[in-house]
Design a protein around this nucleic acid. Structure first.
Lengths: 124, 124
DNA sequence: TTGACGCATTCCCATATCGGCATATGATTG
DNA sequence: CAATCATATGCCGATATGGGAATGCGTCAA
């Protein structure tokens, strides 16, 4: 068996840098193929091919406008990627450590409250 | 030119479902190759190959323990993926719509201020 | 030392890629 | 209708893939 098709899922579709670039460009709004060709500096057929891949996985939608085709981003299709990496965000994001601290402090306060309703510890 | 190597970057490395599965399994802690073979139900050589790819892009680290090799996750290597998709989180997360509203409101206020400050030209 | 174990590497093969190029399709204009 | 513009598709070649099977190699046990 060979490598999975680029259209197999969003992960494969977006593994290609050019396609991520297209997504980034479409973030600004609807763009025609020709405009993308200009912006990317690629040949028109390659752009159309990349767009086809993105279409097949639902990352972009098309709309016919005369003889142009306006592509637009459908960010929702990227959600599976975000859902997956989000689980590993804590490994580089210090904020999660702070959340841990806050939670620990809250828990300690609860225990204090349970024992004695007195002065609150506010040290860091 | 063919498709970019799986070791070209994290995006390509993680496009393979098996490798994401390995990452998910390693989230629990260090695991030996044999354990991964059991958990994945794959042949040992394929697992070693997948691990090699993940190693080359820095997603996993290895440690020798006798005749075993213990793999561990290095979540930081996944950050580029998160950084990229994060920009599109607002398309499915309602919370960001609220932020959008606030930003739009702020922008409207700024424009009001600009007009008030004496921008003579009035387009529209 | 011999053998068994744990893992990595190598070879083979069917497959799908991406880019270049030519061409087909569809809409607009003359 | 013919010509042109905007886009999509088809074919080509070079390349790397992922799984299967065999093998290499270091480590531990007898």
């Amino acid at each position: 068996m060979a490598r999975a098709a680029t259209t197999a899922d969003v992960f494969n579709a977006v593994a290609e840098p050019r396609r991520r670039q297209i997504v980034d460009l479409l973030a600004a709004g609807e763009i025609s193929v020709n405009e993308l060709v200009q912006l990317l500096g690629l040949a028109q057929p390659q752009v159309s091919k990349h767009l086809r891949v993105l279409r097949e996985v639902g990352v972009v939608d098309v709309r016919d406008e005369g003889r142009q085709r306006l592509y637009r981003l459908n960010g929702q299709a990227l959600k599976p990627i975000h859902d997956w990496v989000k689980a590993y965000e804590h490994t580089w994001n210090q904020r999660f450590d702070l959340i841990d601290d806050v939670l620990a402090e809250l828990k300690a306060q609860e225990e204090d409250d349970a024992n004695f309703n007195g002065e609150g510890d506010h040290t860091g």
